[in-house]
Design a protein around this nucleic acid. Structure first.
Lengths: 348, 348
DNA sequence: CGTCTGTATGTAAACGATTACATTCTTGCC
DNA sequence: GGCAAGAATGTAATCGTTTACATACAGACG
């Protein structure tokens, strides 16, 4: 591979000049610049970013450490992150974080010298808090339990969103409302449960442990939980799933069991993934601006990187929106494409 | 940030020794090694991978350049790539490639010095073929039009899969079969169309241009194309969509129009994304082992990297499987979780 | 005790860029 | 023509590693 020296030699200039041409630092004659570029193109020269980052101490790359890469949620998240990063001239280095705390730390040190900052999503509540971060690597936490105020973070208004959705169910007449919970120990899951419980309490409805079913954020989990609920002697009239995947699994279970949605039972989800509106019946959900979530995190991270000294810690929460579709019975069918409009929209 | 020198000083050894400890090249006394590790931990030392790659000429990172990052397909693809890469001790640097040819080249040079090899998905047929690649960077093409035999590539058995699915439709009695095509100029889309046409020809069915509808691989595209088909005076009895997203859009359109699936019209997709089986009715589709596709590509790339000289170009195709569910009427409902079994499975 | 052998450690030259500083070249003006 | 000023270019130190080679040290052996 051609190096800056090869280009310099061929163009009969010094490496400094070549460098100047490629960073357009000005101060180089038009003709020289042209000659250098020609030679560079000929030699297929591209600056070696490792070498560059060694001296400049910048990589123009952001590390992204996620618990998983699978499914619509992460897909959209990465999309949002990439878009914003690139807009600012940054690349992203994606990695799925391993299980334990030590493994996350391990992954983080592997990023040393590769990235200028880190986006870290580590929703496990029971994980020892506040991993000892390399002092000088800016980190933004995503959807992670609050680590106090010492770190930047972006989270979802989970509690508010869940409460708003359950309140809606109550408003349209439901009293026996079940929840299919998210993964055990997961921060988002815990907050959504809290929102559910809060809404019930506010309406003066007695909580009932048998209506709080375990789930794991997957379709299969939702499917099984739904079957279990059907087996109850005193069935709920509505089910709130802590995410859309589980709600979709539940819809599938109800359909197969001949239980009509929303006639016999109402179903609501959380996230409003693109497919929610294509379900039968279209699924009511709590819209989360996932891509915006990623974008916000990147913005904060970039600020921390570029204004290192005067950056103050930020805690952001992205808002959610309740989107009512037919699965909760409220209104007539929503016609999906080409544009979607939300019947009821309550900030939450 | 602590450097190797700091560690060396604190542990009163030379940098060479520290380096040896961290690369366990042997030849260092047990006690020395322990002392070095202790100091390193204390100082939170992590080797600077830029500096390292500069001298070793290896980054342990693979570049991944995709046309988009959005949706189940890419989600699963990245998942498969990451899994295999990590298993071999590699990171992945993900980027969405820009539009034109020059922009791809631009993105590729940005990867210089950051990656040891490149996975490139560039399904645009009309893009000038065979971008002039930096001679020494191994590249594997994913789902891209054949570039002759000078490059490694992994593609899907699109044509066979599509033909098998359409043949199935014919086998269960359909004669008027429409297709909702994929994006214009897209390689996979073109091949799937070819499979559709081949199956018709094999069955002696006259092709009919009005039944070949344009789509763009999105739900909305499928929805609109489906409505257009309904407007035909002589409606088709089956629709083959070039991917599942469009099939889902079509299902939605039919449902709203009161057209029964599979009673009035059969619907089939391609990809078999996880959601296909949760549709109502569950969607017949051509299963593509997406994650395996990514894994295979990584394997080839790693071989090209590690055995640079004796690596010979490989062209791989991953096989598809026709998965029949209720949307094509063949059989009774398939019960989704916890395990899935495919009624009819024809290699294709 | 000298020598030889092998193990453990140190020294210093790379790797490919950036950039402060030094040097050379133009140009305009007296 | 000489000179100053500014523009263009060159020189060389530097970033944090790895690694070939040199060196030191210990034990074995005659």
């Amino acid at each position: 591979m051609a190096t800056i020296k090869d280009v310099a030699r061929q163009a009969s200039v010094s490496v400094a000049t070549v460098s100047r041409v490629f960073n357009d630092t000005g101060l180089v004659r038009e003709e020289t610049s042209r000659r250098v570029r020609e030679v560079a193109a000929l030699l297929r020269y591209a600056p070696h970013s490792g070498a560059r980052s060694l001296i400049t101490n910048r990589t123009n790359t952001l590390g992204v450490l996620l618990p998983d890469l699978y499914g619509e949620f992460f897909s959209e998240l990465i999309h949002g992150i990439d878009l914003t990063a690139r807009k600012n001239g940054y690349h992203i280095l994606v990695s799925r974080s391993w299980e334990g705390r030590t493994e996350i730390e391990e992954a983080m040190r592997a990023m040393r010298g590769r990235v200028d900052g880190l986006l870290l999503m580590s929703p496990d509540i029971h994980r020892d808090t506040l991993l000892n971060l390399p002092a000088d690597l800016p980190v933004v936490f995503l959807c992670s339990p609050s680590q106090g105020h010492e770190v930047d973070s972006v989270t979802i208004h989970n509690m508010r969103g869940a409460r708003a959705m359950v309140s809606h169910l109550i408003a349209v007449g439901h009293r026996r409302i079940a929840i299919i919970k998210g993964s055990f120990g997961n921060y988002d899951a815990a907050e959504r449960l809290r929102g559910y419980q809060t809404a019930l309490k506010e309406a003066g409805i007695e909580p009932e442990p048998r209506l709080e079913r375990c789930g794991d954020f997957t379709e299969v989990g939702g499917y099984n939980a739904a079957l279990a609920l059907l087996a109850e002697t005193n069935r709920p009239t509505a089910v709130f799933a802590a995410n859309d995947s589980m709600a979709i699994g539940a819809l599938s279970a109800f359909r197969e069991s001949g239980v009509k949605v929303p006639g016999d039972i109402a179903v609501a989800g959380f996230d409003d993934i693109p497919l929610a509106r294509y379900m039968d019946p279209p699924l009511s959900s709590v819209r989360v601006p996932i891509s915006e979530l990623g974008a916000t995190a990147v913005d904060i991270l970039l600020h921390a990187i570029t204004s290192k000294n005067l950056h103050t810690r930020r805690h952001m929460r992205v808002s959610t929106e309740v989107v009512i579709r037919r699965s909760t019975n409220g209104q007539p069918a929503e016609r999906p494409p080409p544009t979607t409009f939300n019947r009821e929209t309550s900030s939450g």
